[in-house]
Nucleic acid binder design. Structure first.
Lengths: 339, 339
DNA sequence: TGAAATAATGTAAACGGTTACAGTAAACGG
DNA sequence: CCGTTTACTGTAACCGTTTACATTATTTCA
């Protein structure tokens, strides 16, 4: 039933068109002249026989796959829609295919990465699954990679595209302190060791310190940048008898912010009257949450697009090793107390 | 620079381990017995040399890719996050890879589908780019496919997974009519000819008729199931001097609902006091929109999961040709006027 | 105990393309 | 007008695996 149908090969086409396989190949790849007469005949035969070149054979012979890979920790965030969009648009325009795979640090024990030099021409890495050492050796072997929301290891000039985290977070937290008089700001981390999360935490800490507030480690929770995890984390925090007083929550991202809103709602805490809430990313729904979410606008689709373009740059021998940091800006809405 | 590094092949491993390539292959694929002594040696050599089998060569020789494809119209909707999640989880568990590609009806002119028998072992089809005739011939050739949110062509038993649209929409619209006394309900279509959209429209029409209301074609707009398109469509409608009176909007999906909310807000229309709004899908943010969105809960992640499992069923020769329709339910929130 | 099954391994032919090399005919250039 | 390029085509090696077939050694079992 599901046996592969013996499909038509380049040899069938060649025979039918009365030419050699090399000529057919040349016609397909347009990498050598073919007389118009022959071209027509081959084209006809190809359509008639519904010939489609077998990818594996091409890949093997040409040593390229025309596939690029996107490696993520997971897909548990609406954030990935704009990212994927940016990536996919470029990939499609180039006539390539896109493999989306997940791999994270704890996958590392059971298996090696699902994508890499063996099945792609290059990788967009947005994952902590590949450690710095992995990146180094891949890069040393000349494998094209672009890092997304991640900094290359020392002395390893892998191009990288990310967004500005620290300063904008600092400003946002200062806004909470200075404009809204908040003193006990809870920070909801993303995945431990994820760079955005670390940077946002750095911005958070430095804003507190710059304003003479001490950092209460009890006010830093793990939210994993996931709606459900954030919800649980807040629930646990709020349900805990010895909970610390707080008057604001800086959630690491918009998706987690939804979990936070949910939890706060359920505990009868009013936003922003009792507690301010802010996010990060400015996903499409952010202006329409209740209350509208104060957040940081991050050009995520652009990140995907630029990263992918740079990856193709590598494939086409236009190397570049810059670290591109796209600007972000705070969008003030009601959830912090503004308006 | 980006030249492929001459990587280590199965022959290198075989030589180093003092066995034949066949033995190495057998060890890798566990498809024939290998003495424990040899197995160990091969394993050692493989790790030491960091050998990773070359995918294209495997694919060519074995005539399978261990890749499945997901074909979408586009990625412009948060809806795809749960779908992708459901799909990816199963794909990963099976040790396969996932190619995500977009292709829609109007792509059809320039190019043929980016994924198919030539580069995948099977396809999840959620796209109008492959027409019924394409599906028929692919199916006839024995190529494994599962349709997602789409019904197979007549006499073509391709498995299909979707959600219940018509009845639930009918109930939802009747709710607007009977409970909230709405008489002029605007319907925002999805992509023309998209099945969910057609079904929802059918449910909409039959609810109106069943309640003695006539369908005003001026109250049916095209929203494409996209936030921005929906926004523009509503803007145009509202900005139009000869606009028809309306007291409710049934947007085809939650993402478009955001666009509708935005537009209505900007025109100073209050929800639900002036106009009720409802969505479809119950995406994660729906309960936290302002106002909380009355919508239809669709088990989208489950759809992805089941569809993918069925596709693997096909690959493993457990055919099935049912059309699975997962149940949906209305979630009443404030945007329709409830609560 | 001898025939038959099984375990473990090797040899070499695919798989379906690309491309280096070679050759012929026509066009070009001085 | 002849040597040199250029346009076009074919032959066949090669890409790195899998696997059918063959072979030998070892078990199994009536």
């Amino acid at each position: 039933m599901t046996k592969r149908s013996s499909s038509v090969t380049i040899r069938d086409v060649a025979r039918e068109a009365g030419v050699s396989v090399a000529t057919v190949s040349r016609f397909i790849n347009k990498n050598a002249p073919v007389s118009t007469e022959v071209a027509e005949r081959v084209q006809d035969v190809m359509s008639k026989m519904r010939y489609v070149p077998h990818a594996a054979a091409r890949n093997l012979a040409s040593r390229k796959t025309r596939v690029i890979g996107l490696l993520l920790n997971n897909l548990h965030n609406d954030f990935f829609v704009p990212l994927l969009n940016g990536v996919e648009a470029v990939v499609r325009k180039k006539g390539y295919n896109l493999i989306v795979a997940t791999y994270h640090a704890s996958s590392r024990d059971h298996m090696h990465p699902p994508i890499g030099p063996h099945n792609t021409d290059g990788l967009l890495v947005f994952s902590d699954g590949l450690m710095d050492e992995d990146l180094k050796s891949l890069h040393a072997s000349g494998f094209p990679m672009v890092l997304v929301h991640r900094t290359p290891p020392p002395h390893t000039p892998i191009p990288s595209v990310t967004v500005e985290n620290i300063e904008v977070t600092q400003k946002l937290v200062e806004h909470l302190i200075q404009v809204h008089g908040k003193r006990h700001i809870l920070f909801l981390r993303g995945p431990v060791n994820q760079e955005d999360s670390l940077r946002r935490e750095a911005g958070y800490r430095s804003a507190l310190q710059a304003n003479g507030l001490s950092v209460d480690e009890n006010l830093i929770l793990n939210g994993d940048f996931e709606r459900d995890v954030a919800y649980e984390a807040m629930n646990e925090f709020l349900g805990n008898g010895k909970r610390v007083a707080f008057d604001a929550v800086f959630t690491g991202d918009d998706d987690a912010a939804i979990g936070v809103l949910k939890s706060l709602h359920e505990f009868g805490i009013r936003i922003p009257e009792d507690v301010s809430v802010t996010g990060f990313d400015d996903l499409g729904f952010a202006p329409f949450l209740n209350p509208p979410l104060t957040t940081v606008r991050a050009p995520t689709e652009k990140v995907g697009q630029i990263a992918t373009e740079r990856l193709f740059g590598l494939l086409e021998n236009n190397p570049s090793d810059e670290i591109i940091i796209l600007p972000t800006e705070i969008i003030f809405r009601r959830s912090c107390g503004c308006q």
